[in-house]
Amino acid sequence: MTETPQRPLRVLAAMSGGVDSAVAAARAAEAGHDVTGVHLALSANPQSFRTGARGCCTIEDSRDARRAADVIGIPFYVWDLADRFREDVVEDFIAEYEAGRTPNPCLRCNEKIKFAALLDKALALGFDAVCTGHYAKVVVGEDGNRELHRASDMAKDQSYVLGVLDEKQLAHALFPLGDTVTTKDEIRAEAERRGLAVARKPDSHDICFIADGDTQGFLAGRLGKAEGDIVDESGTRLGTHEGAYGFTIGQRKGLRIGTPAPDGKPRYVLDISPVTNTVTVGPAAALDVVGLTAIKPRWCGTAPTGPGTYTAQLRAHGGETEATAEPVDGELRVTFTEPVRGVAPGQAIVLYDGTRVVGSATIATTTRATAGAL
């Protein structure tokens, strides 16, 4: 396999205002590419987005990105994608929670904004590729097809949130930070050497469009409070809540159940029913999942035609687990070698063959290990 690209390209560098995207743009320019920086304005009211430690979507971030582009010596523009972001990411996020699912807005942003809306516009304007600060690698396989692989530094690998990219998108993607084993401290040191003021800017972790980090309050403000029951596995009412959307599968804290479990052990959220507005809780063992069905599969290359053995990642910062998976009638059927926990409908499952990303899909249903578990 060989890493790509091998020739100078016209590159549009997505500059969020953080240190990673700034260094990625600088490396692309240093490699001889004709680079233009662009910051995506994702809110009609940027003041409402989280500031200070984001490196993502605020006015402060836009200014940081512009200063970085000036230091690198590349043209810089701000593109307004607020309407697209609201429709494809924010409204999708709200709708998924309302339906009792747990979405990943960063993954959806990569799919719909950075590598759909942005890439489509870049290609229409004559650019060859979009460059971002993600930690991942694009390589050319022995058959000449492009593949997405984990970053050389597993501690920083972000291939999970890029698992939605298809081969056509990968053909126009550059990830300058993923090819070398580089720690975040080394990236910051490089930024300082380059004179980039974002060198010590804190990383972004929270959801950019929830300014105060209060996801439940954000959802309540848009969906309204709706009191419902918290019940155990037998259906016994244990307490009430102000909206089933405020819970996620596997949640332990914030249940506010006055009655202790018979065995004295903690209870966890096992199921969320938006139809009845009911939250079901139970023991940790009832969270064990042995299989799942996922929908809307997207393949980073040729789609598998039969069952295969892979490793699966179920959350952005989670580990891998062995699994067998098979596409069936437009869905993905997965069986795990060992039970896994913290699996919720709406999350993404990403399959790997070694370091290669095979593809991803959205979890629709799960099969629990405990007989009678929901």
Rank of each mutant, 00 (worst) to 15 (best):
V161A: 14
G52S: 11
N145V: 12
F209W: 05
F175V: 00
K184Q: 07
N104S: 14
G264M: 00
A41E: 11
G133P: 10
Q47V: 11
L174M: 14
G144A: 09
R298F: 07
F218D: 04
L118G: 00
L255F: 00
E98H: 06
A173H: 03
E167Y: 08
T182I: 11
V281E: 11
R368D: 02
E192A: 13
T370N: 09
R10L: 05
E233S: 13
Y135A: 04
I349G: 01
V138C: 09
A129L: 03
N45I: 07
I230W: 05
W299C: 03
P103R: 10
G213R: 00
G250C: 06
D229H: 12
G359S: 07
P103H: 08
C208W: 15
V164G: 09
A364V: 00
T311P: 04
K265C: 06
Q6A: 15
K265R: 12
S43L: 02
V289R: 10
H134Q: 15
R10W: 12
P262I: 01
S152G: 14
P283F: 01
T215E: 13
A364I: 01
T278D: 02
L177A: 06
L42E: 01
A151L: 03
D263V: 08
V350N: 11
F218R: 03
D153G: 02
G306H: 10
R298D: 05
L351S: 09
D34R: 13
S152N: 12
P5L: 08
I210E: 06
Q47K: 14
D166T: 09
E326I: 13
D353N: 08
N277A: 09
Q251I: 10
R108A: 12
A191V: 03
A197R: 12
E326T: 14
A369K: 15
T293E: 06
D229K: 15
G346S: 04
E3H: 11
V357S: 10
V11W: 09
A286C: 02
G133S: 04
T276F: 09
D70F: 01
T259P: 01
D128G: 10
A199V: 10
A22K: 07
E142W: 03
G342Y: 04
G228W: 00
R267M: 05
D206E: 12
L174I: 09
R237V: 15
E167G: 04
E30I: 05
T278S: 10
L255I: 02
A364R: 15
T51R: 15
R267V: 01
G144F: 07
Q347N: 12
I257T: 08
C106A: 12
